[in-house]
Amino acid sequence: MDALLSAFVACGLAEIGDRSQLLVILLCMRFPGRQGRVLAAAGLAALVSTGIGAAGGAVVHDMVPFRALSLMAALALLSAGIGSLARPKTPKLTVSPRLGAFAGSLAVLLAAGIGDKTQFLTFALSARSASPVLAAIGATLGVLAAAVPAAMLGRRFVHVVPLRAVRIGIGVVLILAGLGFGLDALRLI
Rank of each mutant, 00 (worst) to 15 (best):
Leu109Glu: 05
Ala46Cys: 03
Leu26Lys: 13
Ser79Asp: 13
Ala76Phe: 01
Arg67Tyr: 05
Leu47Gln: 04
Ala139Gly: 14
Ser20Gly: 12
Met29Leu: 13
Asp116Trp: 01
Gly81Arg: 04
Leu22Gly: 07
Gly43Asn: 07
Gly81Lys: 05
Leu134Asn: 10
Arg128Lys: 14
Ala135Gly: 13
Ala136Glu: 00
Leu110Met: 13
Ser70Asn: 10
Arg37Gly: 04
Ala101Arg: 06
Leu69Asp: 07
Asp116Asn: 11
Ala111Gly: 13
Phe102Ile: 09
Val64Met: 10
Leu93His: 10
Leu78Tyr: 08
Ile25Phe: 00
Ser129Trp: 00
Ala139Met: 02
Ala107Asn: 06
Leu141Asp: 05
Lys92Cys: 09
Thr94Ile: 11
Gly51Val: 02
Ser126Thr: 10
Ser79Gly: 15
Asp116Ile: 06
Asp116Met: 08
Arg98Asp: 14
Val95Trp: 01
Leu141Glu: 07
Gly104Phe: 00
Ala112Arg: 04
Phe123Thr: 14
Gly142Arg: 04
Ile25Gln: 01
Ser70Trp: 00
Ala68Arg: 05
Gly115Cys: 12
Leu77Met: 13
Asp18Leu: 02
Ala139Tyr: 00
Cys28Ile: 00
Phe123Glu: 05
Leu39Ile: 07
Ile82Glu: 10
Met72Pro: 03
Arg34Met: 09
Pro91Ala: 07
Gly142Tyr: 01
Ile25His: 01
Gly100Cys: 03
Ala58Met: 06
Gly81Cys: 08
Ala127Ser: 12
Ala130Met: 06
Leu141Asn: 07
Gln21Gly: 09
Gly115Arg: 08
Arg87Ala: 14
Ser126Lys: 08
Lys92Ile: 14
Leu110Tyr: 05
Leu39Ser: 08
Lys89Arg: 15
Gly43Ser: 06
Val38Met: 04
Thr90Pro: 06
Met72Lys: 08
Leu109Ile: 11
Lys92Val: 15
Leu23Thr: 02
Ala41Glu: 01
Gly83Ser: 12
Ala42Glu: 01
Gly115Ile: 01
Ala42Tyr: 03
Val48Phe: 10
Val24Gly: 03
Ala42Gly: 12
Gly53Asn: 05
Ala103Thr: 12
Arg30Val: 00
Leu110Glu: 09
Leu110Gln: 11
Gly138Tyr: 00
Ala127Arg: 08
Pro91Lys: 05
Ile25Gly: 02
Arg98Ala: 15
Arg67Glu: 14
Ser84Thr: 11
Ala55Val: 12
Ala74Glu: 02
Gly138Ser: 07
